[in-house]
Design a protein around this nucleic acid. Sequence first.
DNA 1: CTAACACTGAACCATATGGTACAGTTTTCT
DNA 2: AGAAAACTGTACCATATGGTTCAGTGTTAG
Lengths: 120, 120
Amino acid sequence: MVQFSAARLDASFSALSDATRRGVLEQLGRSDASITELADTFHMTLTGMKKHVCILEQAGLVTTQKVGRVRTCRLGLHGLEEEAAWIEGRRQIWNARFDALDHVVEALKRKETRDGQSDR
Amino acid sequence: MVQFSAARLDASFSALSDATRRGVLEQLGRSDASITELADTFHMTLTGMKKHVCILEQAGLVTTQKVGRVRTCRLGLHGLEEEAAWIEGRRQIWNARFDALDHVVEALKRKETRDGQSDR
DNA sequence: CTAACACTGAACCATATGGTACAGTTTTCT
DNA sequence: AGAAAACTGTACCATATGGTTCAGTGTTAG
């Protein structure tokens, strides 16, 4: 089992919680882009887009490289593996809980039926 | 393909970006719990924990039900399917990009070698 | 009936977030 | 050299976040 780093998950889920930043990831999935190109796409100032890129960079989701006056942004080396793993772990427990819940619901139904017939 | 709702993803990734709330989900995965129990586990006031639970509830990740004076929290009906799907979609593009990148790197290496030999 | 319990709502606080404008700096084009 | 491009850093703003305290409200146990 993987050991999840709270700080990593904090950073990446927080980075993913903004629609603009998710959009940047999608655009970078199609091709690398400069800050200016990203800022144009999302109708935002350079300064504003730079902040988003910094956040994505700190979360390890993108890397950047400055050549001449242009900073090129691309998808980060480590993808979303840890995040995917965390969510998958939760989903398994989730499903197990609901299987169990089905049984509880069954039991409650039977109990209610019995109570309804015998009592009140 | 699923149509992702930006608002949904905003809410759930934002909810998941806090370690306390991820902890609450883990605890609820083991068993349902009251606000008081959760507040005790995370050494927090009732009011503080209530807020976290509200955020998780609005994100659809937990549901609650008040019986008498106790509000019981459990995992929400809709698990993390949309979030998992979004991340998986990204991961596929990620990997495709890196496969492509490998080829680019190869090409660059060959080009550099050639240039180094023939020119400058 | 009274006290304790479990929450709930409002107000407050410090800090973080998402955006802006403006004033540089470094590169590139002519 | 001079102008334009592409960032970068700082300061500013409004709002959101994560937490608290305090003062209720409804529920349950004795």
